Computed example of a mutant assay.
Amino acid sequence: MGQPIAFFEVVSPDHRRAQTFYGELFDWQIAPDPAMGGYGLVETEAGEHAIGGGIGPSMQPGDTGVKIYVKVDDLDAYLDRAEALGGKRLVPPMDLPGDFGRFAIFTDPDGNQVGLWA
């Protein structure tokens, strides 16, 4: 069985505008957190099996865009596998605030950023 998509993220140089845009477009509830620089968790209101997400500010050049996060059981093993297939590690495994787990980011051979979440 394949690994499921667990989270999506929109990163924007104007995250407030992006939060308003997506919230109004799709009727999503977005809760910005000042402690996280205005990063807002998204509740899509699409039922119990809906994928959650976040919309937040750009932190460095080249990080804007839409990213998916795939649920995995071993971040390092999947980063190694991505590299063996031609990808590159971008962000090493890091703890998320609270008890949200850990994440890492790699790029595929075309440069697309993909997140892993454990």
Rank of each mutant, 00 (worst) to 15 (best):
H15M: 07
Y22G: 15
P34W: 03
E9V: 03
L25I: 13
E83R: 08
A118W: 04
H49G: 13
P32R: 07
W117N: 12
E9S: 01
P32K: 06
R102T: 05
H15Q: 09
A118C: 09
P57W: 02
W117L: 15
D74H: 14
L25A: 15
G56C: 02
S58G: 14
G111S: 05
P34I: 04
I30G: 02
G115Y: 06
I51W: 11
A50K: 01
G62C: 02
Q29H: 14
G47I: 06
K71V: 05
P57V: 06
L85Q: 15
E9G: 01
W28F: 12
H15G: 07
T64H: 11
L116S: 01
K71W: 07
D74V: 09
F106M: 06
K88S: 14
D73P: 04
D14Y: 11
D33Q: 12
V42T: 11
D95F: 01
D14R: 12
I55K: 00
R17P: 07
G54H: 05
S58C: 10
F106P: 03
G37N: 00
F103R: 06
G65P: 01
E48G: 07
E24V: 05
L41A: 12
A77M: 04
V11P: 00
P57T: 06
T107H: 00
V72G: 08
V66N: 06
F8G: 02
A50W: 00
A82R: 02
F103D: 00
A77G: 04
E45R: 15
A46M: 13
E43G: 11
L75G: 04
V11W: 03
P4M: 09
D73V: 10
E9M: 01
G23N: 14
V72A: 08
G87P: 01
D74R: 13
G101W: 02
D27G: 15
Y78E: 14
F7A: 04
P4H: 07
A50M: 03
F21A: 05
I105V: 14
G101M: 03
I51E: 12
G86A: 03
N112W: 00
G86S: 05
Q3G: 15
G98C: 01
Y69G: 03
D80W: 05
T107R: 00
Q60R: 14
G87M: 04
G52M: 11
F103P: 02
K71N: 12
V114C: 10
V10G: 03
G62S: 01
G111Y: 02
E48Y: 03
V10Q: 10
K67D: 09
V42M: 05
V10K: 08
T20P: 13
A31V: 13
M94H: 15
I5E: 11
P92M: 15
R81S: 13
G101C: 00
E43M: 08
G2E: 12
D108C: 05
